[in-house]
Design a protein around this nucleic acid. Structure first.
Lengths: 163, 163
DNA sequence: CTAGAACCTAGACTGCGATCTAGATCAAGC
DNA sequence: GCTTGATCTAGATCGCAGTCTAGGTTCTAG
């Protein structure tokens, strides 16, 4: 116990929520239903089943006798990382590849590293791009503010551009 | 002429490319074909026709006798702004609304301003979100680098998470 | 025991934003 | 005149990432 697959590789921000036992449910604080995981991660139950079909988990999610999924806290941690990767633009296909690497155990850390580095690069590029767009948009906003405030027609604002 | 509708509202970075006449084509440096505009904007000819169907231009694009579209430089400038707005996540529907406002001429500048301000806010939020994700991802990268470099097993990297 | 909530599967559907196809027309060079 | 390439229209198709439906099963509370 205690190792969360990869979801917490060496991060110092672990270890602090080990068992806060928020539900005061049953004795065992683990064993989450799909609905609980949905609440905890912000993903819909549909999305969670979809993720499973897509093999985005680090393990086959076990079931109860009745066939219901039983998640562990580590799954939720992994999903939190998935959310971050997705939110930063990683396509499902690449996330799937990453999950596959982690799932197949030690020995491919360099490959995982390369994948993450590439993604980091992509995210930085995306941010730089957004910054560039932002500058232009902000310029527009400033110009419009001036225009609206002062009534200056610093341009003719014609419906049809020139010629 | 010389007013580019809105595509350059008061921005100081205009006026500098007025007619660089890059093609050394015919005497008139304006009057671009759809292919030229595609090259100039990075949009596909399909996308340009799609944009037109969606009423994203500031005017009806005129045609030659033979039915071909004839774009003006101002159209290209407008498309450059569109590209920035799209690249920063503005949906087509909102871009269409903005184009409609500009197209309907003066009198709604406050509305345009509000739209742009809202978009600027959204872009800043998106950047902040990406920054947050980046921090986490970078943390992973650092941890993996350390792991790969030092062989430290700071976590068990098990295929199946805990329990 | 029964009602209702939560869950199950397989598969169809959605929205966005293009992108591509078919079949025709136009324009330029030889 | 003919070929070649760019363009035209209308409409079909695509990829992504879920989202939803239908038709059932399981669990929990009263």
């Amino acid at each position: 116990m205690g190792n969360a697959g990869d979801a917490r590789v060496g991060n110092a921000d672990d270890d602090k929520h080990a068992d806060d036992d928020k539900h005061a449910d049953d004795g065992e604080h683990a064993g989450l239903s799909i609905g609980e995981v949905a609440d905890a991660t912000g993903l819909s139950v549909h999305a969670l089943r979809f993720f499973e079909r897509e093999a985005l988990f680090l393990r086959p999610i076990p079931r109860t006798g009745g066939g219901r999924r039983v998640y562990a806290p580590a799954d939720v941690e992994w999903l939190a990382l998935c959310n971050r990767l997705r939110a930063s633009g990683m396509p499902i296909a690449e996330l799937k590849r990453f999950a596959g690497l982690v799932r197949s155990g030690p020995g491919n850390e360099a490959e995982r590293l390369a994948l993450l580095q590439e993604h980091e690069r992509a995210v930085r590029a995306r941010i730089a791009d957004l910054d560039a767009s932002l500058e232009i948009i902000h310029g527009k906003v400033v110009a419009y503010e001036k225009h609206v405030r002062e009534g200056t027609a610093a341009g003719v604002w014609a419906p049809a551009p020139s010629r």
